[in-house]
């Protein structure tokens, strides 16, 4: 139900773009106004969200420790899973952000049988989610970076190299991009997982299906443009350069699929800052990952720490129990006579 609703929303977006840019001839609006506005909303929204998170303080250092702490000199510390210094924490974050280390950790235990049919415990990792996530994210990253060549003239050498190596397989004309395959495979698998895995299906919301369908539609419209309609890349580059340099020319000779593509991308940009996609920024701020486990070693300040909160004082305690304490022979600060 939630998935169908999401799919319909994405299809509606495709229709809007097809009708708007095709039949209604609002090509300038779809080529410049909408993407430009969307980009501004994305930037402002993204920054605002980060600021809103950053405005909330981190009162306590609460890293989730995933390995041996730093303690006695002869006990080896697990520096990447339980960092106690800045550089170690940086490494933990690098591994988390670039290799999805926590997802990689996902293991499960199974009971297998040895040759004599005796049960033995074996460990297999449940790395499918990690694999799909890696495929998707890296595929998406490369595709996004590759698109920069449309906005830059001349195309910088590293981008040209990326473009070349991405299409190194040299199958089909135009040559197929490896990143397209990664992205589509990752997306399909992530989506399939949401349908097939019962517990994930149960927890999934429109907020989960919609971005998946949207990105899938973006990727498919891109693939359609490149491999099926084989649109004129130079005229698209004109539009892109126009956007980047504020030099708006009426788009000419551009297939309507381009407008669908760019409209969906605009939707994604607008949707991004208000959605779970902000995990892209949030992962860097997560207090259970980006802090060292060092509050026994160095002081950490809580900005709203309230010094007025004091423990129930020893004086009050002794006042409460002075007589029995005296009788039991416990040392007192004030003898019963002094207190009287």
């Amino acid at each position: 139900m939630k998935a169908i609703f999401s799919l319909l929303m994405v299809l509606a977006l495709v229709v809007i773009a097809t009708v708007g840019a095709g039949a209604a001839k609002m090509q300038t609006i779809f080529a410049y106004c909408i993407p430009g506005t969307a980009f501004v909303i994305f930037l402002v929204g993204f920054v605002c969200k980060i600021i809103s998170w950053a405005k909330s303080p981190v009162p306590f250092r609460i890293p989730t420790t995933g390995g041996q702490q730093q303690s006695l000199d002869w006990i080896p510390q697990n520096k990447w899973d339980n960092p106690s210094t800045g550089p170690q924490t940086f490494m933990r974050m690098v591994l988390e952000v670039l290799t999805f280390r926590s997802l990689f950790r996902n293991t499960k235990v199974v009971l297998k049988h040895d040759d004599g049919k005796n049960p033995i415990v074996a460990y297999v990792s449940a790395k499918w989610l990690w694999l799909f996530a890696i495929l998707f994210h890296y595929g998406f990253l490369i595709v996004a970076v590759r698109h920069l060549r449309l906005f830059l003239q001349p195309v910088p050498a590293p981008l040209a190299f990326l473009d070349w190596s991405d299409s190194v397989l040299q199958i089909l004309t135009p040559a197929i991009y490896i990143s397209d395959l990664l992205l589509l495979t990752g997306l399909t698998m992530l989506l399939a997982r949401r349908f097939i895995d019962a517990k994930v299906r149960y927890i999934s919301l429109v907020n989960d299906y919609f971005p998946l369908f949207l990105i899938l539609a973006i990727a498919l419209s891109g693939v359609y443009m490149r491999y099926i309609v084989k649109v004129d890349v130079m005229s698209i580059k004109d539009v892109a350069m126009g956007l980047a340099t504020f030099n708006f020319k009426v788009p000419a000779g551009v297939d309507v699929s381009f407008f669908v593509h760019i409209f969906l991308v605009s939707t994604l940009l607008v949707y991004f800052p208000f959605s779970k996609l902000m995990h892209m920024g949030g992962v860097f701020l997560s207090p259970t990952r980006n802090m060292p486990n060092d509050t026994r070693m160095v002081h950490y300040e809580n900005v709203w720490n309230n010094p007025a909160i004091k423990p129930h004082s020893y004086e009050a305690y002794e006042d409460d129990f002075r007589e029995p304490m005296f009788e039991a022979g416990l040392p007192l600060d004030k003898s019963p006579e002094d207190a009287a």
């Binding site: 909330s56 303080p57 981190v58 517990k199 902000m278 995990h279 701020l285 997560s286 207090p287 709203w304």
Partner: peptide, 23 residues
């Protein structure tokens, strides 16, 4: 509490419901 704890605010926003924690 959203204003006092970045952890809470962040955890309310960024979950993608991937299900890695579920079991």
């Amino acid at each position: 509490r959203l204003d006092k704890y970045r952890s809470l605010k962040l955890f309310m926003d960024i979950c993608v419901r991937c299900g890695a924690c579920a079991d």
